[in-house]
Simulated scan of single mutants.
Amino acid sequence: MTDDLLLHADEDVLWQGSPRLSAAIGAVLGGLVLVSGGVAGVVFLPPEASLFARALVALLIPVGLAVPAYRVVELRRTRFAVSDAAVYARSGVLSREVRRVGLERVQNSAYTQSITGSLFGYGTVTFESAGGPSATFFRIETPREVRSLVDRRAERARDPVPGTIEQWTEVLAEVRELRAAVERRGGGQE
Rank of each mutant, 00 (worst) to 15 (best):
T2Y: 03
L6T: 12
H8E: 15
H8N: 08
A9V: 11
A9I: 11
L14H: 06
P19Y: 00
L21K: 03
I25V: 13
G26L: 06
V33E: 03
V33N: 00
L34V: 09
S36N: 05
G41M: 05
F44A: 10
L45H: 08
L45N: 04
A49Q: 05
L51S: 01
A53T: 10
A53K: 15
A53I: 14
A55I: 11
V57I: 14
A58E: 07
L59R: 14
L60S: 00
V63H: 02
V63I: 14
G64V: 10
G64H: 11
V67D: 00
A69H: 08
R71H: 04
V72E: 00
V72T: 02
R76S: 10
R79F: 01
R79W: 04
R79I: 07
A81F: 01
D84T: 08
D84R: 02
V87S: 08
Y88E: 03
A89K: 10
S91A: 06
G92R: 00
L94Y: 00
S95G: 14
S95I: 03
R96Q: 09
V98D: 08
R99S: 14
R100D: 10
G102N: 10
L103Q: 11
R105A: 05
V106N: 05
Q107E: 14
T112W: 09
T112D: 11
S114F: 09
G117Y: 11
L119T: 07
F120P: 06
Y122E: 04
T126I: 04
F127D: 10
E128P: 05
A130H: 10
G131T: 01
G131S: 12
F137Q: 12
F138N: 14
E141N: 12
E141D: 11
P143E: 00
R147V: 07
R156A: 15
A157D: 04
A157C: 00
P160G: 11
G163E: 01
T164W: 00
E166Q: 09
Q167G: 09
T169H: 13
A173G: 13
L178S: 09
R179L: 15
A180G: 02
V182Q: 05
V182I: 13
R184P: 08
R185S: 09
G188K: 01
Q189M: 06
Q189P: 04
